[in-house]
Structure formats: C-alpha cells, structure tokens
C-alpha cells in the first residue's frame, strides 16, 4: 500500500529538519563565541540534504514515486572569522586579537523559520495520510 510510504518519506524529512534545527541552535548559541586562535574558533555548521531514492516500490517505469531525505553531512562555513582587537580579553592571542565566530545570526534565524515551516508541513502530510488510511481501513462500514 503506497500510502504507508508517506510515513517513511515525511518521517525522514522530519528527521532531517530536526538536525537542521539542532545545527541552528548550536550556531545561535555560539554566535558570540570567541577564541584567540583562528583555527579553533567556532564556525557555523550547516547540514547538507540529499534525496534518498527508495527503489523498493519502483512502480513508474522503474522510477520510484517516493524518496525521502537524508543528511549527507554537516559542513562548516568557510567564511573568515572576524578579528577584533581586545587586549584585555583573556582569550586574546599575544598580539591582543580575538577571533569572533563566523555565525550570521540573521541567516540562522531565517534557517530556523524555514525548518519550522518544513517540519510543520511534513507533520501535516503524515496526519493526512493517517486520516486517509484510517478511512480506507473502515471502508464499507
């Protein structure tokens, strides 16, 4: 029954969006992190989504109608961390500079809203599929 695949598909999306929300929370929490070493300062993390083709129900000329999402990996932003002269900061290096994390708070907030919307949409898809399946089960009653 193909409707059951909706649970797998939407479920994988819920999982992916949860990971995205996790990285966003981590980025926002570390938005003000500083370090005296440019290589050790916190860098914004972003998940990379990939379509996960499911060949178990290849109905359409060998092409499967359902495909979930998986998180291929989490990449760190390559943007250069901002340098600031703060000789009094205990984390400052010998030249008196600290490095700020390269998290862009606005980008993270929009990411959060987008993840929130996508999550809600997929929950709605699951609810709809469940309702339809329950109605189908009670067919003839």
């Amino acid at each position: 029954m193909s409707l059951f695949n909706v649970f797998n598909t939407a479920g994988s999306a819920l999982n992916a969006q949860t990971i995205r929300l996790n990285t966003t929370a981590s980025n926002l929490a570390n938005a003000e992190s500083v370090n005296g070493d440019a290589t050790k300062v916190y860098r914004a993390r972003h998940p990379v989504f990939q379509t996960m083709m499911d060949d178990s129900d290849a109905d359409f000329d060998g092409e499967s109608p359902s495909a979930g999402v998986r998180v291929l990996g989490v990449v760190e932003s390559g943007a250069p961390p901002m340098m600031r002269y703060e000789p009094d900061n205990p984390a400052a290096n010998k030249d008196g500079y600290i490095y700020m994390s390269n998290v862009n708070s606005i980008e993270e907030m929009t990411n959060m809203i987008s993840a929130n919307r996508s999550f809600a949409t997929n929950v709605e898809a699951i609810n709809t599929a469940r309702d339809l399946l329950l109605k189908t089960i009670s067919m003839g009653h």
Binding site: M1, S2, L3, N5, V6, T9, A10, S12, A13, A16, Q17, R20, F49, T51, D59, P65, S66, A67, G68, V69, S114, A115, S118, T121, N122, A125, T128, A129, L132
Partner: peptide
Amino acid sequence: GQRMNVLATNLANAD
C-alpha cells in the same frame, strides 16, 4: 494513493 506519495516526496524534499 500513489500521487499522494509523490507529492509527500516533493514536500519532504522542499529544502
């Protein structure tokens, strides 16, 4: 039912 599957896949892969 199958179309719902395809559309749910589109929704899941929106990002």
